[in-house]
Amino acid sequence: MPKALIINSIDNVATAIADIEPGEVISLKIEEKTRQVNIRERIPFGHKFALKKIRKGESIVKYGEKIGRATQDIESGFHVHIHNVESLRGRGDIKG
C-alpha cells in the first residue's frame, strides 16, 4: 500500500495516507511515472508535503487546482499546512 498519493500530475503537493516519519523515502506514482521524495519532517495521516521546492508567493496545487499560496519558501519533503500556506478566498482580513 502506498504511503502517499499525488492526485494530478501538475500538483506540487502529495497527501499522506499513513503517518510518515522524517528520514523516510516515499515512492509516489502518477501517470506511470514514479518519483521519490525524502521526507524531512513528520507528516500525519491526511496531511500534505511538498513534492519540490515551493517558493514564497507560489500557488499550492492539489487536484490540479490552486488551493492557496505559500507564505514562505517550502523545501521538498516538508509539511505543507496552515503554518506556511494562506487561503485566497473568504479573506475578510484583506481589503479589496
Binding site: 497527501t15 499522506a16 500525519p44 495521516f45 491526511g46 496531511h47 500534505k48 499550492i60 492539489k62 487536484y63 487546482e65 490552486k66 488551493i67 492557496g68 505543507v80 499546512h81 496552515i82 500556506v85 494562506e86 487561503s87 485566497l88 478566498r89 473568504g90
Partner: peptide
C-alpha cells in the same frame, strides 16, 4: 478539518 490536514477553504471545497 485543519486537524485532518485541510489547509484552505479552496482545498476543502475541491474535495
Amino acid at each position: 478539518n485543519i486537524r485532518g490536514g485541510l489547509t484552505t477553504i479552496e482545498e476543502k471545497s475541491l474535495g
